[in-house]
């Protein structure tokens, strides 16, 4: 632990450790960036920015500690501090349109889905995935974030508190409100798929 901090790594050692410990997080990190920005190019930039910062501060990273949580924290801070300001345009997704879709009464009438009851077919799985993505993307970014960290990436409340710089109590209440909001958006769809809610 503490013997790591004082030791100056050679560039080769540093690069090797950086690759071994931080690059394996690329996939979840890119997915997180994409869910925050809702744009592939922006996600790309954000991830590069994150790794650049991580490399710069790699000496402060203690080997064997939670690399994933550390990178997620850097990425989330980059997103808030720089990225959001840089891209002045509001959101890439027309939320009002998505909201309208979920609030409209003609979402899949009963007859429309009556024949697709086999949940194992791939197309139905895709359909559900698309619905979940649309509903999730329509949530405010703070809500979207906690749901992704918890349900998709499996972070604990404590890890989420560290990544987001908020108390655990706030993690809990935010997650609760986020799920209620997501539930509301998915409710009509769930009913149409035969879930009784």
């Amino acid at each position: 632990m503490s013997d790591q901090t004082g030791k100056q790594l050679s560039k080769e050692e540093k690069d090797a450790r950086f690759e071994a410990e931080l690059l394996p997080v690329l996939d979840p990190l890119y997915n997180f960036a994409y869910r925050l920005t809702l744009d592939e190019d922006d996600a790309n930039d954000l991830v590069q920015e994150t790794y650049l910062k991580a490399y710069r501060f790699f000496d402060y990273f203690e080997q064997g500690t939670n690399a994933k949580a550390w990178l997620f924290r850097i990425l989330k801070n980059s997103f808030i501090n720089e990225f959001r300001k840089k891209s002045k345009q509001p959101a890439k997704v027309d939320y009002s349109e998505v909201e309208g879709y979920y609030n409209s009464d003609d979402v899949e009438g009963e007859s429309g889905v009556a024949s697709t009851t086999d949940m194992r077919t791939e197309s139905v799985q895709d359909l559900i995935g698309d619905e979940v993505a649309s509903a999730l993307n329509a949530l405010p970014v703070d809500f979207r974030t906690v749901i992704i960290l918890c349900d998709l990436e499996g972070f604990t409340y404590e890890e989420m508190a560290k990544i987001l710089d908020i108390p655990i109590g706030t993690v809990r209440s935010r997650l609760h409100r986020a799920r209620n909001s997501l539930k509301e958006k998915l409710e009509k769809y769930a009913k149409s798929m035969g879930y009784n809610s």
Binding site: Y30, A43, D126, I128, G129, V132, I147, L152, L182, K183
Partner: peptide
């Protein structure tokens, strides 16, 4: 079920 919808159905990019 709600948690399962996100963890099991949200496609990864």
């Amino acid at each position: 079920l709600l948690k399962g919808l996100v963890s099991g159905h949200l496609k990864r990019v």
